[in-house]
């Protein structure tokens, strides 16, 4: 769906902001561009909808080279969400959401219906919020409007630039949950830029960790955790390593390393798709049982930690 082919970008002749980047994002996949400030992740994102043009290399969206398309037409088919929302202060919420459909010359009824549908899905009842101006909304509400605006014309591709970065931690977590649960997003091809490791692991199907304009490692969360490509990847994740491991490892991944015992009755039963993090939360009082392929195993804290250690050794 989206393909970058040896893309390089210079801002000045001395330093490459983006250095020879290639990757592909499949339809319906969510790729997270992760890294510290100045690593080139936002620059990479902005080249996809031609807010910037690459110095060399090619970018394809839906099989077409973006350089061959008119920027305005290209951008109308790509949803774009910014950290500071960039809502139009002189437009009402519904007018903001209807911006791209209006550019695409949808008729008014269609725009209105679409706007109301989206507002309902994002827990902004149209009756209350349609005619309100952005400055009258809370930060979280503004961000939802920003998301609704990006989704309005139902674009197949979404680019999100630190969409939750300006929110306080609590709001951020709750909006992230809503974001994950939003059915509108299931079929979308999404590239999300963030510097928040936790967010990257929670939302990304694959993570592309960048530093100094280069890709350090690109793969699923577990690959970055357990098979780091270099020292940078290792050190980058170290501060939150335990939590990340617990969250990304599922009980079914550990299945071979869990021992079978006699199982007392009345224990809570967890599905094998649960993460170790969830299992730990559940077993604070008493051990739990897990069912996988009709086999049942009992686990407690020690058993879980042993299994993780064995998993990492293999």
């Amino acid at each position: 769906m989206i393909k970058l082919d040896h893309v390089t970008k210079y801002f000045n002749t001395a330093k490459k902001a983006v250095d020879d980047i290639s990757f592909e994002v499949q339809e319906g996949e969510t790729l997270v561009l992760l890294g510290t400030s100045g690593c080139g992740k936002t620059t990479t994102l902005r080249m996809i909808n031609r807010l910037l043009d690459p110095g060399s290399g090619h970018i394809y969206v839906n099989g077409k080279d973006v350089q061959q398309q008119s920027p305005a037409v290209l951008r109308r088919s790509i949803g774009y969400v910014l950290q500071n929302t960039g809502l139009f202060p002189h437009y009402t919420v519904s007018e903001n959401i209807g911006t791209v459909p209006a550019l695409l010359q949808w008729d008014k009824t269609r725009i209105r219906n679409r706007t109301i549908t989206l507002m309902d899905k994002l827990r902004l009842p149209a009756a209350t919020y349609a005619e309100v101006y952005p400055h009258q909304l809370s930060g979280g509400q503004q961000q939802r409007v920003g998301l609704a605006r990006a989704l309005a014309a139902d674009p197949p591709v979404l680019l999100l630039d630190e969409p939750f970065g300006a929110l306080d931690p609590l709001t951020r977590i709750s909006i992230r949950k809503e974001f994950k649960a939003l059915d509108e997003l299931n079929s979308k091809t999404i590239i999300l830029v963030t510097h928040d490791v936790e967010e990257a692991f929670e939302l990304g199907d694959r993570i592309c960790l960048m530093n100094e304009g280069r890709i350090q490692q690109l793969g699923p969360a577990t690959a970055l955790l357990f098979k780091p490509a270099n020292d940078f990847v290792q050190t980058f994740l170290d501060p939150q390593r335990l939590q990340l491991e617990l969250k990304s490892l599922l009980l079914q991944d550990l299945w071979p390393f869990l021992t079978t015992k006699d199982i007392p009755a009345g224990l809570q039963q967890l599905p094998a798709e649960s993460s170790c993090w969830e299992a730990l939360a559940a077993m604070t009082h008493s051990p739990v049982t897990v069912v996988c392929d009709q086999e049942q195993k009992e686990i407690d804290g020690n058993a879980l930690m042993d299994a993780i250690a064995s998993y990492k050794k293999q």
């Binding site: 807010l51 951008r75 139009f88 911006t99």
Partner: peptide
């Protein structure tokens, strides 16, 4: 606001 300009451009306003 630069964010507004950026958002507008990013959405495909000429």
């Amino acid at each position: 606001d630069n964010n507004v300009i950026e958002a507008a451009t990013g959405m495909g306003l000429s």
